[in-house]
Design a protein around this nucleic acid. Structure first.
Length: 200
DNA sequence: CAAGAGATTCTC
DNA sequence: AGAATCTCTTGC
């Protein structure tokens, strides 16, 4: 309950390392309705020199925040329905970010259930990027905001040994699918659904 | 200005 | 397996 934001230095690392270090830490969002919190259990890294990255072809209006300072929120809208919440990595001028793919709910579960009317189990609240954005009420108003202060922030949680962290190919993309830049806590029931690889 | 793609979710 | 549904980006 006593959540304090991680400081700026936490984000002073390369984006692949940041994606692993974020696992076990806690996303907190305060709203007029109440607050919600969840532990990060699954992330994906998107690098500048990476065809799957929004910033691969340079800065645009949409991805501009990715080129800003690390530790800020990059929130974008996809498929006409969902928001995806990312944490900007690397230095200013380099367009990289970590997608938060799944959380383990810690606080404000009742509020999460109200926001996610389709969910009837705890494991359906935040086990996917669009789902957790809805449960945590993260939207376009958070795009570009620093996560070291304010109503939406990342708090220190737990650290896990690297033996508990699984690397795997990223989900839902068509380019650079060979990169294993998806990280999750092994055996955690809130990790988003894993898809079978088609033949091989 | 039109078309297409898209870091998803839900339902059939 | 396919629909829903919006915004940005790109191409003509």
């Amino acid at each position: 309950m006593d959540y304090k934001p991680l400081d700026k230095e936490f984000y002073n690392t390369d984006t692949l390392t940041l994606a692993r270090m974020l696992l076990g830490n806690i996303i907190v969002n305060h709203t007029p309705q109440g607050f919600t919190a969840g532990m990060i259990v699954e992330t994906e890294a998107y690098l500048q020199n990476d065809p799957a990255c929004h910033a691969f072809r340079g800065k645009t209006k949409r991805n501009a925040v990715m080129f800003g300072p690390a530790g800020h929120a990059y929130v974008y809208f996809v498929y006409g329905n969902h928001y995806c919440f990312n944490i900007v990595g690397n230095k200013e001028g380099i367009g990289e970010a970590v997608l938060i793919r799944a959380l383990e709910p810690l606080d404000g579960l009742e509020l999460m259930f109200r926001r996610r009317r389709k969910a009837d189990k705890i494991t359906d609240l935040t086990n996917g990027p669009g789902k957790l954005a809805e449960a945590m009420a993260i939207g376009r108003e958070h795009n570009g905001l620093p996560l070291i202060e304010g109503s939406l922030f990342v708090a220190r949680g737990w650290s896990f040994p690297s033996s508990a962290i699984v690397c795997a190919p990223r989900i839902g993309i068509k380019k650079a699918t060979e990169k294993e830049w998806r990280y999750y806590l092994q055996g955690n029931p809130f990790v988003s659904k894993t898809y079978h690889t088609r033949g091989g």
